[in-house]
Design a protein around this nucleic acid. Structure first.
Lengths: 110, 110
DNA sequence: TAGATATATTGACAGATGTCTATATATCTG
DNA sequence: CAGATATATAGACATCTGTCAATATATCTA
């Protein structure tokens, strides 16, 4: 149980958390450290593989369009969501792979 | 799978993440959003129930004593660690309960 | 009580962050 | 091409954050 079993696993191992691994996890946690961004991510992930149009994300979060755009960029750069253009608008969907790092680490606590 | 199964669960339910729940999760994520603080928390949790003396946390993280003290305060206020005094020094230990909220939410992604 | 040690607080400062308005860019449609 | 719509970028600003040196507080011991 205290054994690293996959390349992505940063769970509770024998050695303390390396500075390098800490950066990866902190990066994801940082992306989720803002309430608005967290709810934004929540809206994206519930949309599943199909994704959600960016135009449907501004109004429910009560923030300006540039602010939402900014938050989406942060989520994208953290590897939590990805986007694809479809004509005039852009669809965002969650990319849960990055979560493996964080959940592997966090879940080993409880 | 999209079902809330426990009182603490803020997992992927029928409704979007409330602003209130988002605050709770964001608060924890925020506490873990700094690499130094993340490694600090890691050192505390590996100490188990016995905890670790604050005096042993400054050197391995290469930060000044006030800085470590500050980070420990942030972790404490986020509910991630608790402290008890034993004479001149203070022992910190992890309080994994708060994690339930975050891990329940995050783990429902992958 | 006085000195030593451990931890917390204060105050400062540079850099990051969330937000907005204004503007730019990209794409579609007529 | 011209107008409309969707998204991104730039710039500004107030607030927050990580860090340190200096200092205060708490506790032990002689």
């Amino acid at each position: 149980m205290n054994k690293v079993s996959s390349p992505l696993a940063v769970s509770l191992s024998a050695r303390p958390l390396h500075a390098k691994d800490a950066l990866v996890i902190a990066r994801v946690c940082s992306a989720l450290s803002d309430p608005v961004r967290l709810r934004l991510f929540d809206l994206v992930r519930r949309a599943g593989a199909a994704g959600v149009c960016s135009c449907d994300l501004t109004e429910p979060l009560d923030r300006s369009q540039p602010t939402i755009s900014h938050h989406l960029k942060v989520l994208r750069e953290a590897g939590l969501v990805e986007s694809r253009r479809d004509g005039t608008w852009i669809w965002y969907s969650a990319t849960p792979k990055v979560f493996a790092v964080v959940t592997n680490y966090l879940s080993s606590v409880s």
